[in-house]
Design a protein around this nucleic acid. Sequence first.
DNA 1: ACATAAAACGAACGTTCGCTCTATTTTCTG
DNA 2: CAGAAAATAGAGCGAACGTTCGTTTTATGT
Lengths: 260, 260
Amino acid sequence: MTSSLQSVNANALRSKPSDSKVGLGSFADFVEQFPLVGEQLYAKVFQRNSAIVQTQKPKFAVANLEKILTATFEVSAVSGFDRMSLRDLSRQTGMSMGAIYSCISKKEDIAVMVADIVGLANEYIRDHVAKVDSAFEKIEQAVRYHLYASTVLQPWYFFLFFETRSLPEELQQASIQIETGAIEQLEKALLSGVAEGEFKTRDARMIANTIVVLLEDWYLKPWKTRLFAHVDGDLAEQEALINNYNRSIIELVEKLVAKA
Amino acid sequence: MTSSLQSVNANALRSKPSDSKVGLGSFADFVEQFPLVGEQLYAKVFQRNSAIVQTQKPKFAVANLEKILTATFEVSAVSGFDRMSLRDLSRQTGMSMGAIYSCISKKEDIAVMVADIVGLANEYIRDHVAKVDSAFEKIEQAVRYHLYASTVLQPWYFFLFFETRSLPEELQQASIQIETGAIEQLEKALLSGVAEGEFKTRDARMIANTIVVLLEDWYLKPWKTRLFAHVDGDLAEQEALINNYNRSIIELVEKLVAKA
DNA sequence: ACATAAAACGAACGTTCGCTCTATTTTCTG
DNA sequence: CAGAAAATAGAGCGAACGTTCGTTTTATGT
């Protein structure tokens, strides 16, 4: 019960994770700066999917998208997207069938929009990491940014993982490539660290893969850390839990690469 | 492309993994000895679920269960259990609707039987590991046995992971407990290794959790190692791939626990 | 060869699905 | 505050779902 996954110690409450000038600050800072939080998130959903969203007026569209997506996450986390009927969705959102279909045009559209946002979030991560120079810091920032983004967007990441098969075929491929892309990005960073003498490992791909599955674990099994039990609760507590898990991953990587 | 996840070197072809007297031999040995392979598997399904299986004569029941479960794995790996209609299943098995319903009594029963077998396999793993003394060997054997079992039963493990939500509530809990149980078992082994001075780590739970997610990765993402592309093919090649992945995990653990 | 019981069959059942349609209400605009 | 435009409600559509059932076929024991 004193394990790093469950307990939160005082050190973890620090929020000064990196000294790089492009480095990411605390989770609180991230939440203020990340473009896919709160109202901005659903505005972005509307903006990027105006082709499939039927409602034209942003005011209504954004509000309805929020209702629909929130309800989708709630219902389908329990029973899955396929078992969620549009009548369930109507009940949960308080919207009528017509209201829902004046916002989306097919049930599948909901899944498509989720895939789009998660893909966008991963682009942000990729772009952010590309700005970092040192190999080790690349990894540190990739892990941190990914944890932050997948905390804020936990239901989105979770949904995409489990409901990929509800997507049109082309998007299924794209969704798999998000994972392989993340592995390759980390592997590249590790290999360049080895080339520059910063790291020592023969097993870059295994390490990269380990990092990725640990990151997936964070948003797939939140009950392991009880993070999302208080999702509406204390931001400082969330911060502590993330920093704690983040540090566990980084320490693990340090041991694996025999960092110089 | 020379990474440990994808390449197979000559060393990995060895099949003498352990010197313990209760230690597990090669994958080939395991396949001969494991009670949930080939015909025995479906006989066991029938035996343990005779209460819900409608067909009485074992001869018919076993043959039909094999058809139904095989077809379920094939269809629902692509489209998910919910989207798989019993008409799909009828087409894929070559059985009529009536024939299917003279074997099972509800669609849900299929998922229940899968959960039962995976649960049983994990009991075998637990019992096997309990016989081992040394802490490090406990971990080694747990990893090896788990990889072997989840290779042989890959569609079963895969299905249970993705379709837990199709189970009755009580079994959903049980299915989660399989994972938490595995983590706790490994954590205990690690902690006892620390107590005996065999290991040195402050982070037993994180390491245990890392092992478990890597084991899950093996059966969830077989395309990463292309293992199951030749599932009907060369046993020696499978053996090599498993040993390779197994060794990657063990080496990783050795680095993490600073083994004495 | 026959009798009996189990198994296989497939059309049909009631239900629910995703989705559409239109009368009505709400919101925006001049 | 009037009129146009947009959004809504919820009944209704055909299709597909899981399941049932009366019947036929097959296997088994004598």
